[in-house]
Nucleic acid binder design. Structure first.
Lengths: 200, 200
DNA sequence: GTCTATATTGCGATAGAC
DNA sequence: GTCTATCGCAATATAGAC
């Protein structure tokens, strides 16, 4: 029980911060949920904020890995790149079920973690989408009048939103669980179909 | 300066809660931002939570009005109903620029306000979309294999996400401001084009 | 590395003067 | 209806024993 107090705190921090936000979670909550002592947070992470930032880095780990992997890949055709993004979102959500909630928590209610961690990753994801869409327009795959900046936001929105509302959707709305892949498949199909150049 | 202390508190509560979330805003913050006294929050709203709920109701006012208006309207064709929803989102955002942020704050980090206020409105909006999509599939406007539950989430996602990230997009990403209507027009076009039945 | 005990600060709420 | 002063409590953080 020595070294993995850190891991248990990161785990507890992920679920608690994801569900209630930074300000609504106390160090005592974290200690209790993880089975650690209150002092452990300061000892291992230098305080609540340090734990929060470490948790953010932990959550973004699969994103960072994926971005590195993509950099070493041979360039794909635009549609394949967008498809890769869609499957990336779904895949990352399997490994880090709270990442999207946490990230959007940072977007709606920014804390110091936005500057410290989140701002490192968002622009890189955005650039990837932007480039794919720009290339796709140039190649004639997508509508020539497409506003690429807006189209990036649309893709992120149509995919991310599902994972954010999913926990509450099942309690608020009559949405049966038919699987994340099914949602992503249909949403991405709608999007891709929507930005494609009209067949003449 | 008698009666409108209430209004000033509601105004300050809207911006502060929208930007930082319920837990991160103190009664002292609210008093200072509104020019009111700390005791005014308890006097007028029975406490911080009461003010928060009143603010939520105030934010949902345009939604409530719109839902009432729609109930008295003759039934529209499915595509028109979706179009109405899209323009409703844009129009409401003009009157209540913080509504979508606040609502999604409640979705990612639920407080008592979710049960008390938000849960009244979400299912009614969802039903409206669900019915329009179901009718559209039945009428042959939309793809017959469309999963209507998922398609509701997709439409909300593609539209709402923009308004949520807008404030930060301008600081994080190279997205120039080309107007909300332009975003909504393109995003809705993508969505509608995406769910339409393939021309044979 | 872990724990208890404690220092300090800030919180929400309200009693009571005006 | 507004304000000051204050109560009681919970927050983060840490000193020091183990």
């Amino acid at each position: 029980m020595e070294k993995d107090t850190r891991a248990k705190l990161l785990e507890a921090a992920s679920t608690l911060f994801a569900h209630k936000g930074f300000a609504a979670v106390s160090v005592r909550d974290l200690a209790q949920a993880s089975g650690a002592n209150v002092a452990a947070v300061s000892y291992h992470f230098g305080g609540k904020e340090g734990l929060y930032h470490a948790m953010l880095e932990y959550q973004f780990e699969p994103i960072a890995e994926a971005l590195e992997r993509i950099k070493t890949m041979p360039p794909l055709p635009p549609v394949e790149r967008l498809t890769l993004y869609a499957s990336l979102i779904a895949g990352v959500h399997q490994r880090r079920p709270y990442l999207l909630r946490i990230m959007h928590g940072e977007l709606t209610s920014p804390t110091s973690g936005l500057e410290a961690v989140v701002k490192k990753y968002i622009p890189r994801i955005y650039s990837f989408l932007h480039q794919a869409l720009t290339d796709g327009v140039a190649a004639g795959d997508f509508r020539p009048d497409l506003d690429v900046d807006f189209a990036c936001i649309s893709l992120a929105g149509i995919l991310n939103f599902y994972f954010i509302v999913k926990p509450l959707a099942r309690q608020l709305l009559p949405v049966p669980d038919r699987g994340d892949e099914k949602y992503v498949a249909q949403a991405f199909a709608i999007y891709l179909n929507g930005i494609r150049r009209e067949k003449q």
